[in-house]
Amino acid sequence: MASDAVTGGMPAGDVVVGVSDSLAGLAALRRGIVEARRTGRALVAVRAWEPPEGDALYRRRPEPSWARLWADEARRRLDRAFELAVGGPPADLRIVRRVVRGPAGPVLCSVASSPDDLLVIGMARPRGPAARLHRRPVHRHVPARALCEVLVVAGPRLLPREARILRRGRHEERWARP
């Protein structure tokens, strides 16, 4: 790599991590932090968001106050992901937080646009009918189109009962918030 000579043996570029609320997304964030520490790079945590009803419907009847609300919610989820993954943002890293409107795959590929970047994404192990409904899996889009090295981190394997308990805990937590 030609850029190693310029940076004194350390790779140039950033460690870009696609952050989501899923267990695979949290595992990707943890691995991104490890890679940023190991290589001395900056960590760019990216949260992509889209209007809940879809961009096509939103364009027909745009409402900027709703868009601000959804962007703020994406920022809160990005901050919450750091809390869930590692107990808060690490003080020993340079962290750049980006909340970008758009589909996750194209957003991540545009943020990690340098060949020297490392892009870290999580890959859930989908099962059942919900897996067939997910039309644009990020773990297929990103490796096929990214201009940089991609690290795909698998989510943890859970027994069906464990997954149900975790989902129930998340719902109870949502209702318990003031």
Rank of each mutant, 00 (worst) to 15 (best):
W175F: 03
G18S: 09
G9T: 01
H139I: 05
P62F: 06
L43V: 13
R97K: 13
E149T: 14
L26A: 10
R60D: 00
V86L: 08
L29M: 07
R157K: 05
L69D: 13
P137V: 07
A67N: 03
R161G: 11
A56K: 03
L78K: 11
R38G: 12
R38N: 12
V142E: 02
A104M: 03
R68T: 07
E172K: 13
R98L: 15
M1E: 04
D4L: 13
A12C: 04
P11L: 01
M10W: 09
V16R: 01
G122R: 14
L93W: 02
R75Q: 13
V100N: 02
P137E: 03
E149G: 04
L151R: 12
H171Q: 14
A146V: 12
R164V: 05
P143F: 09
R145W: 05
V111I: 12
A104Y: 06
D92L: 05
G88C: 08
Y58L: 13
S114K: 06
R161N: 02
R161V: 11
P126K: 06
R61H: 14
M10R: 13
R125T: 10
D92R: 01
P115L: 10
A5D: 03
R127P: 06
L84P: 00
R127H: 15
A48E: 14
R132H: 08
A27G: 02
W49I: 08
T39F: 11
I95M: 06
P89D: 06
V150T: 13
R98M: 15
L166F: 11
H141E: 12
A42T: 12
L84G: 00
R60C: 01
A112D: 13
P51G: 11
G102F: 05
S113K: 07
A146E: 11
M123A: 15
M123K: 15
A48T: 12
R47M: 07
E162W: 00
G169P: 01
I33C: 09
